[in-house]
Design a protein around this nucleic acid. Structure first.
Ligand SMILES: [Mn+2]
Ligand SMILES: [Mn+2]
Ligand SMILES: [Zn+2]
Ligand SMILES: [Zn+2]
Lengths: 146, 146
DNA sequence: ATATTAATGATACCTAGTCTCGAAACTAAT
DNA sequence: ATTAGTTTCGAGACTAGGTATCATTAATAT
């Protein structure tokens, strides 16, 4: 949908360069594959699409992209770790256990609630991990047509 | 603190027998170690304390105790999976990143909030995973004495 | 062009498990 | 007590997912 000028892959590489990372051909390859990804993906899936890139490089790239905030980790209900393009900032996901769709959960008041619950226990909140599993709208519709 | 009659280890074994598992000496050994555990522990720590029990048996025992609801899994901030004695029912943990203390989070309204947030997105909630990290009361006190 | 530094990838290694399978142990029925 | 049927055991092979090492190569700065 994006015409010329500034592809998503270019954005990813720019983010790395801003952070002082060199622009190398393995990194360009990784950026291109990730930019074309519709859903969340595993390190292994990425590796299959880039057999010419070394394993260590795949994992290193994922790590720096997560650190840069452009990818986020998503823990599926089966325990498998996936990655997906991230909107900057901390957020959570609604994950469909049926079709794998993932919807971002932004600007809700979960953080506030955790803050107050922690305070009630004398805890100073420093972080949290949350994943929410369920069935998405379209899976509900196609599945319960009666 | 428990006098005679019904030790925690015995409770664990009874839970297994109720579920149709035989009472065997490896299981008794596992139950005894777990019953004496003050904090959450890893499979590996359990293994170190039970060098005579086979590795597969350790993992099998942990799995059935989790399934039975008497142990719960706790994901530490560093990604390591620990186990700890569970009060029955779904609940979450406040985990101190300083001293490792873990406090159960029961009867709060997180579930309700998740329910309504999911509904707002057209999701049918089926489950979630939540861990909360911070500093506990006593760590806060000893650390900021000024 | 040269020097400096960062990045790569082959490979070895590691952690946290799971799988297999013959042997041992438990339980129930005689 | 013996037997038969079933469960459980544990040694060891195997796996997934990831990290450490390190000699070689590539990117950038001068
Ligand atoms: Mn996201
Ligand atoms: Mn708990
Ligand atoms: Zn769906
Ligand atoms: Zn603490």
């Amino acid at each position: 949908m994006r015409k010329r000028g500034y592809s998503l892959a270019e954005q990813l590489l720019d983010t790395l360069e801003e952070r002082g990372y060199r622009s190398t051909s393995p990194r360009r390859a990784v950026a291109n594959v990730i930019a074309g990804q519709e859903r969340h993906f595993t390190a292994e899936e990425l590796r299959e699409k880039l057999p010419e890139v070394g394993r260590a490089t795949i994992y290193r790239s994922l790590k720096i992209l997560v650190d840069a905030g452009v990818l986020c980790r998503v823990l599926l209900e089966d325990g498998n770790l996936h990655y997906q393009l991230s909107h900057r900032g901390h957020h959570h996901h609604l994950l469909c256990v049926e079709c794998g769709a993932s919807e971002d959960l932004l600007g809700c008041d979960i953080e506030d609630l955790l803050q107050s619950v922690s305070a009630a226990h004398g805890f100073q909140l420093s972080g949290h991990w949350l994943e929410v599993y369920g069935r998405c709208q379209s899976c509900l519709q196609t599945q319960v047509p009666a």
